[in-house]
Design a protein around this nucleic acid. Structure first.
Lengths: 126, 126
DNA sequence: ATTGTATTACGATTATATTCGTAAGCAATC
DNA sequence: GATTGCTTACGAATATAATCGTAATACAAT
């Protein structure tokens, strides 16, 4: 069974940056975080060290400045959070989530077509 | 500006039950929680009291057994969490969230049609 | 009225998360 | 080789969340 993975809020923010960049130093992560949150460098460092201990990230220590790499796929987190959200906020209804998302957040024409196609391919499978 | 509303994980679980039932006693909420989590009655009570202090719920104290009522709409929470999720887990792309949800969680035919209709009505607005 | 049962209130403990100061290492530059 | 600047390591303080035991209270049943 795969270990339960449950990053805290701050940890998730960091992971999100790492997924974006694929790999990054503490400094790089910290610079992004600072854009929205006023926090010291060592705080970010410590968080990333803890994440390393927990196995949420791995790191390349071959040079002095360590490079951090997320240790699991973004997709895994997506699946987990989407599932939890459907359950607690949408009474188990996937379509309600989808409709909320489409209704309140902009999706462009291209996106909409892609979704339609996906729906059709699901329909055809049945 | 509306107060930032940020329930903890346990609080969100409780809110989710309250939204489901519209209103409920501590006992009723506790019974649902116990189905998935082994925790004492007074823990649930305390959590709900704290939620009351914070204004997350209101309560009817007219009889000895208090009745708790969520103090804001489920929709507000949905919007907030969906937004945060799109941002941190889907690189800001609504369609990616939608596609993940449709791909991994079952939606029935009726749901799918409803979504298609919604998409078309969005398309026509442009 | 007494007893029993379910409820709330409240304090205290424990667990977890977040924050940061300080020290130590290392490399480049003066 | 001293100084400067950036890095990691680490411990400790602070903040927040979750847990539960105990006592007081209300109410119903006997």
């Amino acid at each position: 069974m795969s270990k339960t993975f449950k990053p805290t809020e701050s940890e998730l923010d960091i992971l999100s940056i790492l997924w974006e960049k694929n790999r990054a130093t503490v400094r790089e992560v910290h610079e992004v975080i600072q854009q929205t949150k006023d926090v010291g460098y060592t705080t970010t460092l410590k968080l990333m060290q803890i994440m390393h201990e927990k196995g949420l990230v791995s790191r390349d220590e071959s040079s002095k400045t360590h490079i951090y790499i997320p240790s699991f796929e973004k997709e895994k987190a997506q699946e987990q959070y989407v599932g939890k959200m459907i359950k607690t906020l949408f009474s188990g209804s996937t379509s309600q989530l989808v409709m909320q998302a489409l209704g309140h957040h902009n999706a462009n024409q291209e996106d909409l077509s892609a979704i339609k196609q996906l729906i059709e391919s699901i329909e055809n499978k049945k």
